[in-house]
Amino acid sequence: MAKLLEVQNLQTQFFTSAGIVKAVDGITYDVDEGETVAVVGESGCGKSVSALSILRLIPDPPGRVVGGHIKFMDQDLATLSDEEMRKVRGNKIAMVFQEPMTSLNPVLTIGLQITETLQQHLGLSREDADERAFELLEKVGISDARRRLKQYPHHLSGGMRQRVMIALALSCNPKLIIADEPTTALDVTIQAQILELMKNLTRELGVALIVITHNLGVVARYADRVNVMYAGRIIESGTAEDIYHHPRHPYTLALLRSVPRMDLPRQAKLDPVQGQPPDLTKLDDGCAFRPRCNFATDKCKSSGPKLETVSDGHATACWHHDKLINALETA
């Protein structure tokens, strides 16, 4: 399949009074057409910032993309003017945010927010836009759509608002949707509904999806490929099977061991990674995970490992990845 999005050595930094925060520190990945890629990691690992960087939505100041290239449909997004970038945003690349309450405008009706997008990006007439908005709401499973179009966001539940966000994201037939923690604020039964909806719609319409999440279960259910991030870098990437069954980075392994399982009786105490994530203003050249890692040696201190391919499509950034072969089985 053709490459839709290529991110090369992306670096985003925030210039704060406490120092330079290297929120994203040289990440490289790509997304094929129609594929679902997950970006997983804990708070502050740079997963959201990397997504905002793609859309050039980093507030400047304090933040700035200081290096790297983002190629989308063979076009370097960095070279576009602001006006051209606006046409990409919402049109070719859409975004679904975590907070459906704060990402919808509370003083505009649902209908107006959808038709505004349609009129702006697709140049539809008022009537056509109204009709299309109605179709979109039906498509995302909102009943009584005519009435909903006239309502305001506060009339709707969290799950409904997230459906509206998805309708908005789909409104201009994008090639890529970036969903940043799309279901974190929702209850599990509603989360399941929304994820199922996104999966079906992206498959049906051939839209590629980047899901940013911290929930390893969500990733296992929906992602084709997975990038695991830690301290601003991708430390492991591969298919979902690679990552869950043959992790080759100590952090990935630790994450998997930290999650309690709902499908199995309790076997033993959890084996969480000790300590806290690092301060992103004080990173050195070594591996950022070193202080919390059971495999760390002097080599990890002197130089940071680069992503290295260990098998077809599976890459890890660890000097000691050989020691992790079959690590899950021997646990």
Binding site: A192, L216, R221
Partner: peptide, 18 residues
């Protein structure tokens, strides 16, 4: 509705949506 962190299990699971 709760997704299980194991892609192989998830593929074979039937989801009963409420």
């Amino acid at each position: 509705a709760v997704p299980i962190p194991d892609p192989t299990i998830e593929k074979g699971r039937k989801h009963q949506m409420v």
